[in-house]
Design a protein around this nucleic acid. Structure first.
Lengths: 342, 342
DNA sequence: ATCAATCGTCGAAGCGCTTCGACGAAGCGC
DNA sequence: GCGCTTCGTCGAAGCGCTTCGACGATTGAT
């Protein structure tokens, strides 16, 4: 593996000139640059990333802290990670994976001190998150995928739950639905102050109330069985219900079964709109679900771009960047059946 | 950020002694070691990863080359990546992501020359794969997740398709089924010599023939619509069919619809066994599918462990490490209905 | 007591790069 | 023609660590 010294000798210039030719930190005459380029090509020279990092104190590496992850279908995570890695590469950065949960702030601090990363991307952020403090005191640039309760001074990229629930309700109301339920994540996630659960609930309620409609929402464990029960409970609370917004993929499969078991046809008798979904899940139902697909790829791209800006000394986003889920019309939503009697 | 020099001064020893105390490369007296440890703790010292890597010529970083990935539900990929990252960390390695497709062998060579990684994990290997050659000539240790056509001298970790299809057929035959279909991946993947498609097909056929049964298998695009058609074709080919093995998640959802539309109840009239599935997909059907879950986490762990061994100068696996998918009984397989009339 | 073989420690030479100060050679105004 | 700036290049000093050879101080065998 050729070193810069080899290139310098071959091009009859000094080591530092090669470095300047490469980085452009100082001007180099065209003829010299040509000789150097030639020498590099002939030797197949690639600058050593570690030496470069050590000397410049910039590793050109970003770290992605990602959760232990025993979640069910996490196509969204894959999309996110793939997109983040691709974007990092486009900006000349490596992306390293740090598998740390919310309780491992201390270990994160350790890794940060190793100087391997110029910046950190933190995903699955809790409303209250020790890792954020750890990163803060470590003094390393970082951006959050998600939001803590207080985002002051932080750079965040997150799903726009307000807009997503608003759009979801708007879609159903436009179709004539008035009695709409919301099937949320589990009570456990609510208790743990899992942001999507809280924000989804709030967004749905506001979207309904804004229209003078009564919101009905239930928490539901991530399983088809729980989904059936939750759907049953929603119908018990409001028998005139004709549509449901779900934000719980696995439970949705149970919910549709409950509906069909009651003789309610989807979408003729009842509309189902699944929000914040992984790619492809809509297609797994019959009829295929109308979904609002979680913007995993966008989050990855924007998160990395914000971080790169930050690492380069740029400004942190003053406000969180919020991305809404995109509505994808499937076959599970349709105009409300009967004129509403309420 | 404290350096080794700081620690040395504080402990009243030389820089090299600190290094030896840390690495154990040479003996250090207990009392000296104690002083050094103390100094490290007081200063919160963490060795700089880049400097360590530069000096020792080992970055303690592994690279994971992973596909562009526009696949549908890739929970398995997530499992794999998470498990690989966790295992790498347990062994004191970082894991960096290199998003490269099969056609980017040249760029891989470039990155390898940068000296950032001690070893490479290559996933979604094609039977014929330029990247393997690139890695080979680069002289960097690597292990494959999957297998090329010729695995001589290579270290591989892969799904055991023979065993998986054998177990799948055995499960169904034990239940009394005799006319069994196989719903494979797409013709495109077959043409591209995508290994799972080829090996799955072959394994299924052999498992059937071994029992004196006639194998019926179809290629099928990854969509529910194609799944319906493929299921219809299988039934047309063999009307007495009472069970199907599927290796195409999205298509499976269509296949079950086709069966139910024909009045065939699952599992009373017809058994469906979905193999090489992502985590959680079984639960998405009603009834929940009996599946053979792809061992994503095991592949990640074993792949990294093999690579760590290789990087440490250990022997490459002489034979590929093959892992079978684990049968998870759901509600979509049951004893064959009527005594077989064939 | 004597000599060789440890043992524990130190100093120094890198690893391959970035970056700072310096310094001839041009180029400029006057 | 004089000093002055600008341009292109060089040498050297690190970045924070590993590792090699060396060297007193013990230790054990004789």
């Amino acid at each position: 593996m050729a070193t810069m010294q080899d290139v310098a000798r071959r091009a009859n210039v000094s080591l530092s000139t090669v470095s300047y030719a490469l980085s452009g930190a100082r001007p180099v005459s065209a003829s010299t640059k040509a000789r150097i380029d030639e020498a590099m090509r002939e030797l197949g020279f690639r600058p050593n990333a570690l030496a470069q990092g050590l000397a410049s104190r910039r590793s050109r590496t970003l770290a992605l802290i990602f959760p232990a992850m025993d979640v069910g279908i996490s196509g969204t995570v894959t999309e996110f990670v793939a997109s983040a890695a691709r974007t990092a590469k486009e900006h000349g950065y490596h992306l390293v994976l740090w598998p740390f949960g919310a309780d491992q702030a201390e270990e994160i601090r350790d890794l940060v001190h190793q100087g391997m990363a110029d910046g950190v991307l933190l995903m699955e952020v809790r409303l209250q998150d020790d890792r954020v403090d750890a990163l803060h005191t470590a003094g390393l640039p970082f951006t959050l995928i998600g939001r803590t309760a207080d985002v002051d001074g932080l750079t965040c990229v997150d799903i726009d739950f307000d807009r997503t629930t608003e759009d979801a309700v708007a879609h159903l109301v436009d179709l004539g639905h008035r009695h709409i339920g919301f099937l949320n994540h589990s009570a456990a996630s609510h208790a743990a102050r899992y942001a999507p659960t809280l924000r989804g609930q709030q967004g749905f309620r506001e979207a309904m109330v804004r229209r003078g409609l009564e919101p009905h929402d239930v928490l539901c464990h991530e399983s088809p069985g729980a989904g059936r029960e939750a759907m049953a409970e929603l119908l018990a609370r409001e028998p005139r219900m004709t549509a449901v917004v779900t934000m719980n993929e696995i439970a949705t499969f149970g919910a549709t079964v409950e509906l069909q078991d009651r003789g309610l046809r989807i979408p003729e008798d009842f509309s189902v709109l699944s929000i914040v979904t992984s790619p492809g899940v809509g297609a797994m139902s019959n009829p295929p679900l109308t979904t609002m697909h979680a913007p995993g790829a966008e989050l990855g791209r924007l998160g990395v771009e914000a971080l790169v800006r930050l690492v380069g000394g740029g400004p942190g986003g003053p406000a969180p960047v919020l991305i809404s889920c995109r509505l994808e019309i499937g076959g599970s939503t349709a105009p409300a059946r009967s004129p509403d009697r309420s």
